[in-house]
């Protein structure tokens, strides 16, 4: 017996590749430490999630909605520090082929 797949309509969700193991798959997922909205949601100033409301990665490994972080960095009281660890914020370069290499 042979099973031939002619075509396949599937449903998938996209996730940000935050590098974190997504153990709680069906839960809310991780939230942005600033707006408390899940990463795959969108920040308070956006209406569309995903590419329109991207994430930003810090070298300190903390991840935020980009818009949230930029707004925080823009305030004088931020002193350009990461909200989570108060280390100076340095945006990480994303390794485009990280996952590919990992595989």
């Amino acid at each position: 017996m042979k099973v031939h797949v002619k075509n396949w309509h599937a449903i998938a969700q996209w996730r940000w590749d935050t590098g974190a193991a997504d153990a709680d798959d069906d839960g809310e997922g991780d939230v942005c430490g600033i707006c408390r909205v899940p990463y795959e949601g969108c920040c308070p100033s956006c209406k569309m999630p995903g590419d329109d409301c991207p994430l930003i990665w810090g070298e300190c490994s903390h991840v935020f909605h980009m818009h949230c972080l930029l707004q925080w960095i823009g305030t004088s009281s931020s002193k350009q520090q990461c909200p989570m660890d108060r280390r100076p914020w340095v945006t990480a370069e994303r390794k485009v082929d990280r996952t590919n290499n990992a595989r």
Binding site: G33, W72, P83, M84
Partner: peptide, 9 residues
């Protein structure tokens, strides 16, 4: 005051 962070609640 100066040690505020938006990560606090």
């Amino acid at each position: 005051k100066d040690k505020w962070s938006p990560a606090l609640q």
